[in-house]
């Protein structure tokens, strides 16, 4: 009997305080019934038989779970909303980290590309850790307070107003949107940084900077377009046309910049001739990549419009 008492106590330890007595009492009654029935069948019932019976019932923790199943931290009805919120907030934080670290870098901080990347990662991880904890705790509280009558309500909608999305490629991934936003905001920062920090020089030559400043409204349009994509999350013909326009502009500007000296050599005093050549080569490679990617997106979107 001592073994049964110990087993019940072990189950009770895994239960919440207010359930222990009631479940323990019932479990004991059930075990004694089983022992009684087995005794009637077998005649004698020793400690070894009790042990076998308890083993067959399962580990005390498993038994406790069957009597009182643990509630998930986030209710399943809130899980999609939780994942979307996390994704969006972390995406915004990544963009902010890129802007902050780039500001420091352009402000004269002497850091190489590896330190630059590490600085972004470190800044992002710090803020992401806090955001992740805050969002998770908020959703856990919402899950606890949610009853069957108080289920989260979805926005008003009607089947007639749902957008047509017959092609799988029409769905826009959040990762694509945030990558675009981070790249565009980074570019705006690079171009306009000297304007609000009078003490620092631009990385770009005067000619390249002039071209890029004229190009800024297009980048602004692309940012607004990305924010609109966050809202609709679906490619339409008009959005594809706009994307073709933006990418064509990127293609043209990258081709023009290839014909000019993009970097201002005076702002790179720490580099020797070889370093300057590498930097120029790097910029040209980036411009070629931009031209190739923009061309690809123009062709891709033109084909998609025809298929819509």
């Amino acid at each position: 009997m001592d073994m049964v008492e110990r087993y019940i106590a072990a189950v009770q330890r895994e239960l919440p305080e207010d359930k222990r007595d009631d479940i323990g009492r019932e479990l004991k009654a059930n075990i004694l019934d089983q022992i009684e029935a087995l005794e009637a069948q077998q005649g004698q019932f020793n400690d070894s038989d009790v042990s076998s019976l308890l083993i067959s019932m399962g580990h005390p923790r498993d038994v406790a779970i069957t009597y009182y199943p643990p509630k998930p931290l986030i209710a399943s009805s809130l899980m999609r909303l939780y994942a979307s919120t996390l994704y969006m907030v972390l995406g915004v934080l990544f963009v902010i980290s890129v802007i902050e670290v780039t500001s420091t870098w352009l402000g004269g901080s002497s850091m190489g590309i590896i330190r630059f990347v590490f600085a972004i990662a470190s800044d992002f991880i710090n803020s992401a850790f806090f955001a992740f904890s805050a969002i998770t705790i908020s959703f856990a509280v919402m899950s606890r307070s949610q009853t069957n009558e108080n289920k989260p309500r979805t926005c008003r909608w009607s089947p007639e107003k749902l957008p047509t999305a017959s092609k799988s490629w029409q769905h826009i991934g959040l990762d694509n949107i945030f990558t675009d936003l981070a790249t565009l905001l980074f570019l705006i920062l690079l171009i306009w940084y000297p304007l609000w920090r009078n003490d620092s020089n631009s990385l770009f030559s005067t000619e390249a900077l002039q071209i890029l400043r004229w190009f800024t409204p297009v980048i602004g349009v692309a940012v607004v377009h990305s924010l609109w994509q966050l809202r609709v999350r679906l490619w339409s013909a008009s959005m594809l046309w706009l994307n073709i326009g933006v990418n064509t502009a990127f293609l043209v500007v990258s081709l023009i910049l290839m014909q000019t000296q993009v970097l201002q050599i005076e702002t790179l005093p720490t580099l020797d001739d070889w370093g300057i050549n590498v930097a120029q080569y790097g910029i040209n490679t980036i411009l070629i990549a931009v031209a190739v990617i923009s061309s690809y997106e123009v062709i891709r979107d033109a084909r998609r419009i025809r298929r819509l």
Binding site: I23, L27, M57
Partner: peptide, 10 residues
């Protein structure tokens, strides 16, 4: 089995 029945009754 008892592991299913007893919690179900509760």
């Amino acid at each position: 089995d008892e592991g299913t029945l007893y919690p179900l009754i509760r």
